[in-house]
Design a binder for these strands. Structure first.
Lengths: 129, 129
DNA sequence: TTAGGAAATGCAACTAAATTGCATTAAATT
DNA sequence: AATTTAATGCAATTTAGTTGCATTTCCTAA
């Protein structure tokens, strides 16, 4: 039986993501946690949290991976995210729009496993500036 | 006035993308064109073609950038792609489903500029294997 | 409460992808 | 054909992510 442990670094990163209202990249997390743990450790913690269904990856439109908490995932079944992400070109923030679920009609014989919907543009915070 | 030139390498890459029925990554293009031009040149040609509205970028679910021809874009206005992309986890192919346009309802004050919709799963070619 | 096994970490080295500067080459216009 | 400037090649550099291994730290069972 493989077990997972609660370390200080893991807890810190997890609560960091929980409290953030935008998705965070590895680099953003690194500058945030500072000297708390090593660069490599952050990679491994993020992998673990994804594995455990605590957070999910969002591939931003510029290719940078961002991380955000999950709401309905666990470690048993695979990630299930059908919501839209919004990527702001001004402030570079990525947010989960958990309530926005797009609909589409696929041709036959496509078997969908995962979904990545990202809109880019100006977010409400930046639209007034 | 900035002008753009038709070089052999550019033409080769352009027709390569036109004739492919899947989107191609930089690496795939590189192995295809072989010694025709330098690695770096491929990067620059792809950037130019995107700039000119000939091709568009697709960020695959694994973060790899793929390129596919545009149908309704030009160099004057920005890229306008609202179609779905399908990424097959078996054969690693990415295809444009130009006829599949998802619908969604955004909260107010979001100003959408570009769209990146990618579904991953099993494509029709691989579903029988 | 602690002793021991396994998970997690740090560090250094490595790999892969993409970018930059600069000298050289080759389109396109006259 | 001459000219000018976009495009290319090459080498070096940056950036992101991975791997191996020794060490540390967590957690459970005695």
């Amino acid at each position: 039986m493989k077990s997972t442990r609660n370390t200080t670094a893991k807890s810190a990163i997890q609560s960091l993501l929980q409290q953030s209202n935008t998705a965070l990249s590895h680099k953003e997390i690194q500058t945030e946690v500072g000297e708390l743990c090593n660069r490599v450790t952050i990679y491994r913690i993020l992998d673990r949290l994804v594995e455990e269904g605590e957070i999910h990856k969002i591939i931003n439109t510029d290719g940078v991976i961002k991380y955000a908490p999950c709401h309905q995932c666990d470690s048993n079944h695979q990630h299930n995210h059908d919501h839209v992400h919004f990527s702001c070109v001004k402030c570079d923030s990525v947010t989960c729009l958990d309530n926005v679920q797009p609909s589409y009609n696929l041709p036959p014989n496509y078997q969908v496993q995962e979904v990545n919907f990202t809109l880019s543009g100006i977010c409400p915070n930046c639209i007034t500036c």
